[in-house]
Simulated assay, not measured.
Amino acid sequence: MITYETIGDYLLAWRHDTSLAAVPIKMAADAHGLTIAEIEELLEVEDLPSVSIAGKRYIPAIALADMENKEQKQLTAALSLLENAARLKITVTCESLMHAIGLSIHSLEDQRTFDRILSLIHHDSQPYLTVLLPVLLRKDNTDNAMPPDSFLIFVRREGLMEGDERGFVDRQIKRVWRDYSERN
């Protein structure tokens, strides 16, 4: 961690190198939809760098931009994989999707990142209402596996759930497969 004893020391360094820009932890949390505790957890395990300025911790702005870019690439990869699954008329386990986009099912932070990515996918597909790609995700690889809880919560919250969960999921899968087979 880089340390500046005074705010003046930091500002002098920043004037010569604006890439040293840093933001308060709360601002970093707000920018990424995280809690302060989650940002502090990332700092604790050194997944996110910090700068000490006059005894207070700040987050380098460049690290936040890198975090955003990485998550955007993971989102793009996840969407691509789900679209390919739709064209192939298959389902995908959450674990295999996480692995494909560079996340570990064993990491709590990776699971949170995955949940944020799924939330973005839910909201990206929601305006169309006919194609909900995350319906292709499965909690596990068993025959009766359902999509992740976040998907079911999303469709209930948006008022999209029609009938029982299993019937709704089965109908949505058919819609997704039909829509993507027609796109080819």
Rank of each mutant, 00 (worst) to 15 (best):
2 I>E: 14
2 I>T: 14
4 Y>R: 07
6 T>Q: 06
9 D>C: 08
10 Y>I: 06
11 L>P: 00
15 R>P: 01
17 D>N: 14
18 T>E: 10
21 A>S: 11
23 V>I: 11
23 V>Q: 07
25 I>Q: 09
26 K>L: 07
27 M>W: 08
27 M>K: 13
31 A>R: 13
32 H>Q: 09
33 G>Q: 08
35 T>N: 03
36 I>T: 10
38 E>Q: 15
40 E>A: 05
41 E>N: 14
43 L>D: 12
43 L>S: 11
43 L>P: 09
44 E>P: 01
45 V>T: 15
46 E>L: 11
47 D>N: 05
47 D>A: 11
48 L>E: 03
50 S>G: 01
50 S>I: 00
51 V>D: 02
53 I>H: 13
56 K>C: 07
56 K>M: 15
57 R>C: 08
58 Y>V: 02
58 Y>F: 15
62 I>S: 12
63 A>R: 04
64 L>D: 06
66 D>E: 15
67 M>T: 01
70 K>F: 06
71 E>Q: 09
71 E>Y: 05
72 Q>C: 01
72 Q>N: 08
73 K>A: 11
74 Q>K: 11
78 A>G: 03
79 L>W: 02
81 L>C: 06
81 L>A: 10
81 L>G: 01
82 L>S: 04
83 E>D: 00
86 A>K: 01
87 R>S: 09
89 K>Y: 02
90 I>S: 03
90 I>D: 05
91 T>P: 03
92 V>T: 04
93 T>D: 13
93 T>K: 00
93 T>G: 11
94 C>M: 12
95 E>R: 15
103 L>H: 06
103 L>M: 12
104 S>E: 13
108 L>Q: 10
111 Q>L: 15
112 R>H: 03
115 D>R: 08
115 D>N: 12
116 R>W: 04
116 R>H: 12
116 R>A: 12
120 L>W: 10
120 L>D: 14
120 L>R: 15
121 I>V: 14
124 D>I: 07
125 S>P: 00
126 Q>T: 02
127 P>A: 12
127 P>S: 09
128 Y>C: 00
128 Y>E: 10
130 T>I: 07
130 T>C: 03
131 V>D: 15
133 L>W: 03
133 L>N: 04
136 L>Y: 02
137 L>D: 03
138 R>T: 07
139 K>Q: 14
139 K>M: 12
140 D>H: 10
143 D>H: 07
145 A>C: 10
145 A>F: 00
149 D>Y: 10
150 S>W: 02
153 I>P: 00
153 I>E: 14
154 F>I: 02
156 R>W: 01
158 E>D: 01
158 E>S: 07
158 E>K: 14
159 G>W: 09
159 G>F: 06
162 E>H: 11
163 G>C: 05
165 E>A: 15
165 E>N: 13
166 R>W: 04
166 R>N: 01
168 F>E: 04
170 D>R: 14
171 R>K: 14
171 R>E: 05
172 Q>A: 14
173 I>W: 02
173 I>A: 05
173 I>V: 08
174 K>R: 14
174 K>Y: 01
174 K>P: 01
177 W>K: 10
180 Y>D: 07
183 R>W: 03
184 N>C: 05
